[in-house]
């Protein structure tokens, strides 16, 4: 590629390391998308195109993969993504009330990002924390038994 790389040296090195995990470069594509998303929060079109090029894939081929998986974001998201479980145990144990509470505190609905760009709220399938339902992921942190008190602690700027 003659054009200047959009990806940082660290990202390029990271992708190169991931490619070494597999017999084909393509196999590293999901890992690579996740790696780049770490810092950039989402995969912009130009970023996707450069990753595709690095892996010897066409843009369409990589986008077919990127749009399949729900943890690859192709649109901007907030600094912290709140993934609130909507599967059956959490539903039974009151996830809808929790969702309404978060919505009210942050003034966003599912799929939306707060005006300050801090939070995005999304539903997620079972997080494997059913014995502490309702559960959610705040960024990378798994939180169980989510209730108003927990939310006061986790979202200090948005106390009920």
């Amino acid at each position: 590629m003659t054009a200047k790389s959009i990806l940082t040296a660290a990202e390029l090195d990271g992708i190169a390391a991931l490619i070494s995990h597999y017999p084909t470069a393509r196999a590293a594509c999901i890992d690579s998308l996740k790696l780049v998303q770490e810092k950039r929060r989402y995969i912009a079109d130009d970023v996707l195109a450069e990753i595709a090029h690095l892996l010897g894939m066409s843009v369409a081929e990589l986008d077919e993969v990127a749009t399949f998986y729900n943890l690859i974001y192709r649109q901007p998201v907030g600094e912290t993504v709140i993934l609130l479980c909507d599967s059956v145990t959490c539903w039974m144990m009151g996830r809808n009330q929790v969702a309404a509470d978060i919505s009210k505190r942050l003034a966003i609905k599912d799929g939306e990002t707060t005006a300050d760009g801090k939070y995005t709220m999304l539903p997620i399938v079972c997080l494997g924390h059913c014995d502490h339902a309702p559960a959610m992921l705040m960024g990378k942190t798994l939180v169980g038994n989510v209730d108003a008190a927990q939310l006061d602690r986790l979202l200090p700027e948005a106390r009920a």
């Binding site: 145990t89 399938v125 079972c126 924390h129 059913c130 014995d131």
Partner: peptide, 11 residues
């Protein structure tokens, strides 16, 4: 890839 709702043993 434990994702079956209600399942939390592999974690």
């Amino acid at each position: 890839d434990e994702m079956e709702p209600g399942t939390f043993k592999d974690r």
